[in-house]
Amino acid sequence: MKALGFIAVLGTGLLLLAASRDFPNWGDPDSPASSYRLSRHFITETINETAVPNMVTAVLADYRGYDTLFEAVVIFTAGIAVIGILRRYGSRNSIPSARETPLTPKKPDLIVESTVRLLIPIIQIFALYVIAHGHHSPGGGFQGGVIFGASFILLALARDLKAAQNWVAEKRTLILACCGILIYAGIGVLCQFLGDNFLDYQILHRILPTDPVMARYHSILVVEIGVAFTVTAIMFSIYSNLSSNGKMKEGI
């Protein structure tokens, strides 16, 4: 088995290495990815069409908004799948001894407590900054959402899952995740109701007090907030299900 696997991997690797000679050299300005007209359009026209200096954000939420919507749906589906696979309600299947005595009697550690107490607000403010400042610096809904979810995971790691559940209960997590998707898809449907294509934000200038370019600018922010909601909620939901084996009781 091992030898067979090694031969297969070696063969694939050699084929790929042979094929890699057709790829452009490192940093070649004339490579197809860099010289294609789409790349040129994104670089020169993004600021005129959307007024967003960060092209990555503009391409993510505007030009490829449809793709990003369904990436968010994939994350949402993954979260639902984890709950469907692991979550156990009630105490039918649980081992009684594990429930009576938790693995480690929790005794709050002074250093860990104070560090976490100082760190979490800073992490959360930074996450909000990353979400809101995605137009002008590296950032956006996905990154900020992951950072925000990490702050809850840190709380659950440092104390226990109960402490984190006091902040974001399971029900609230799922509502947050659904809200994110609804915000994103709602913006798209709103564009349709106003008479343009799905997720074609510029038509929103009819209800926003701005011109079409700035309507795209602000819709990108709204969409990023929706993505951030979903990512935050699903990251924490996946962690809490995995760490507590679906019981949502004590966690690691």
Partner: peptide, 24 residues
């Protein structure tokens, strides 16, 4: 070119969530 960055930005987060499903 911003496009590869956009694709990988979403791929990272999607990768994490699919890894979560696999682990569960």
């Amino acid at each position: 070119n911003p496009l590869p960055h956009v694709l990988m930005l979403t791929a990272i987060v999607v990768g994490v969530s699919t890894l979560g499903v696999a682990l569960s």
